[in-house]
């Protein structure tokens, strides 16, 4: 009786049509290539950025010497005799991001230690989403704060402060990137295994000792990465400074003065009526190139430091 049905021998299970299997494999392979192409797009973006910046900047450097660009202390692209020394833009960028980091690094460190080592779970669970929400507030709104709220407030204490200055946008930017700095360095501290914390507590360490002598040293590469990425963000931030720091290139390190940064210069030229191919038009790509290289260095250092702490545990 068992052999009466030769089409279904005892050992074989369900029959699958070879046609279906072929089709299935084809779909599988094409999906693979489609996904790979999508991943490759991200590389194309970088290639596009480098291509655009480089091609326009090269034309720019045909007319302006590289030496003048990297050493000059006067930046007047719109004058009849234009000068192209990047330092006034760099000094503005350095001052504003310096103030921002001076606010955001100590505050961020205290906050992240508090959240990761001290705060009860319910506090942490409440604060972290709030920080995430704050990360989403558009930067143009912070620019408004800096120009119309913080500067007038500062003028109460510093009567000589002009309406456009670097201090107010620096301070506001510091608060603005605080959620970012805090959550990155908190992540690094949370990645320190709990067994290390318990080891410290078992020796009689207080929370403060555990945080400062065990957790922070163990999370150092991640915390450094957080601050470097914050630096990258401060250097590349545009709207706060464009609104509140004035757009006059000014070679100064005095935060009480207004000055342009690399980013605000690009905004200023974009807002104006500059013809395609003119030297002023080309100069924003040269400035953008400097900005891209600066942040590239920070981003790469941040990437490798973060990778290190992720591998460590």
């Amino acid at each position: 009786m068992a052999n009466s049905n030769p089409a279904r021998p005892e050992s074989s299970g369900l029959q699958v049509s070879p046609h279906f299997l072929r089709k299935r494999e084809m779909v599988n392979q094409s999906a693979r290539y489609v996904l790979m192409a999508a991943a490759a797009v991200s590389v194309l973006v970088t290639i596009g950025i480098v291509y655009v910046l480089l091609s326009e900047a090269l034309v720019f450097f045909e007319e302006v010497s590289v030496w003048e660009f990297v050493s000059g202390t006067s930046w007047t692209p719109m004058f009849s005799v234009p000068t192209f020394g990047i330092w006034p833009l760099l000094s503005g960028t350095i001052v504003v991001s310096g103030i921002a980091l001076a606010v955001s690094i100590p505050f961020g460190l205290v906050l992240s230690v508090y959240l990761s080592e001290y705060a009860p779970d319910n506090v942490r669970e409440t604060v972290k989403p709030i920080l995430e929400l704050l990360e989403g507030v558009p930067t143009v709104v912070y620019g408004y704060f800096a120009l119309l709220l913080v500067t007038p407030m500062l003028q109460l204490f510093l009567p000589g402060l002009p309406g456009f200055n670097m201090l107010a946008p620096g301070l506001v930017m510091g608060i603005m990137i605080l959620p970012y700095t805090t959550s990155l360095s908190e992540d690094a501290m949370r990645a320190v295994p709990n067994s290390m914390r318990e080891g410290a507590y078992a020796l009689g360490y207080s929370r403060f000792h555990t945080a400062t002598r065990v957790v922070i040293p163990a999370a150092m590469s991640g915390i450094t990465a957080a601050f470097i990425l914050a630096m990258s963000r401060a250097v590349g931030e545009t709207m706060v400074v464009a609104i509140a720091a004035g757009q006059m290139p000014n070679f100064t390190f005095n935060p009480m003065e207004g000055a342009a940064t690399i980013t605000t210069f690009i905004v200023q030229v974009s807002l104006g009526d500059v013809s395609h191919g003119s030297i002023a038009y080309l100069s924003i790509f040269a400035a953008g190139m400097v900005l891209f290289l600066l942040t590239l260095v920070f981003n790469l250092i941040g990437f490798f430091l973060r990778k290190r702490y992720r591998q460590a545990y």
Binding site: I49, E56, S232, R233, G236, S270, I284, F303
Partner: peptide, 17 residues
């Protein structure tokens, strides 16, 4: 990872160029 940290205005230059 780098693209996540490229300033937004640089994307603007990409689009412009």
């Amino acid at each position: 990872s780098n693209l996540a940290g490229v300033p937004s205005i640089v994307y603007g230059l990409l689009a412009l160029g």
